[in-house]
Amino acid sequence: MPTTVLGVVIFVGLLLPGYLYERRRERDIPQRTRSPLRETMSVLFVGVSADVVTGLILALAWSTLPVRAPDLAALLRTPREYLIAGPWLVVGWAAAGLAFACLSAYLVAARPWHRWLRRRTRFGKLLRHAEPQQSSWWLLLREHPDLPKYVGCYLDDGSYVAGRLHSFSRVSDETADRDLSLRHDPEHPLVYRPKGADQTYPLTNIGAVAISARRIVLLTVTYREAPPPVSTESAKFPAQATPTAQE
């Protein structure tokens, strides 16, 4: 571990891009249990890679553009004296380099070009189904991220509840400890059908509900801009819209 202020700054500069990469990447992949060593190595590798690429880009800019740049040779020979003589030049370039490295790592994790490829190119279907071995829970609820999802749940006691998807657990393990939440939608409110009933009832004055995965027997997901309201017939069998996926 670093024992000086400069060492701490360098240590943070090495790890911060990798940390941002991991945090952003977690939003698009199922949650997995990883060993501390593997997670540390991932953060360190991405951080160092982003810093090295940023350093090469800055060196190219210093050699080709008419800008005032630090003297790296003098900085490496006598870092203390050089920093005292011109601290703002070094600090400014270091801050700009760190910001660029963090932004680069974040964009690599976000992969905006991946979304464009999925929508606009012939490889979109291949990319959407590139990892079919993932959890079906994750694949169904993450499919078509730009479309609202209308979810219907048949519960183990024979009842039925449906509504607009609000959130769901990112745990990739197929366990019953996961849950999802449905929220009220102005056009399609939360509805509930008790066991043995033939008609669904809106859940008035309720903004959202949480449902445990251990209670779900059948899960339907509808990907549409405006799925039709759930009627009595759709309560018997949730064929309210297509395409419908089942788990």
Score class of each variant (00 low, 15 high):
P87I: 00
L89K: 02
V91F: 12
W93C: 03
A96H: 09
G97D: 11
L98F: 05
F100N: 08
A101M: 08
C102T: 09
Y106M: 15
A109T: 08
A110R: 15
R111I: 00
R111H: 10
P112S: 07
R115G: 01
W116S: 03
R118W: 02
R119E: 15
R120S: 13
R120N: 13
R122F: 09
F123W: 15
F123H: 15
F123S: 14
L127G: 11
H129P: 01
E131R: 14
Q133E: 15
S136F: 03
W137A: 09
W138E: 12
L140R: 05
H144G: 00
D146C: 00
L147T: 12
P148K: 06
P148H: 05
K149C: 02
Y150K: 04
V151C: 01
V151E: 06
G152W: 00
L155D: 07
D156I: 02
D156K: 04
S159G: 07
S159K: 02
S159T: 07
Y160T: 03
V161N: 07
V161E: 07
R164V: 00
L165H: 02
H166L: 11
S167T: 09
S167N: 11
F168D: 05
F168N: 03
F168P: 06
V171S: 13
S172V: 05
S172N: 15
D173R: 14
E174M: 13
E174P: 06
T175C: 13
T175H: 13
A176E: 14
D177P: 02
R178Y: 11
R178A: 13
D179L: 12
D179R: 13
L180I: 05
S181N: 09
L182A: 12
R183C: 12
R183D: 05
R183W: 05
H184Q: 15
H184E: 15
D185T: 06
D185P: 08
E187A: 12
P189N: 08
L190N: 10
L190I: 08
L190R: 06
L190Y: 09
K195E: 13
K195Y: 01
G196F: 02
A197N: 03
D198R: 09
D198Y: 02
Q199Y: 05
Y201K: 10
N205L: 12
I206Q: 15
I206H: 08
A208D: 03
A208T: 04
I211A: 06
A213W: 04
I216P: 05
L219W: 01
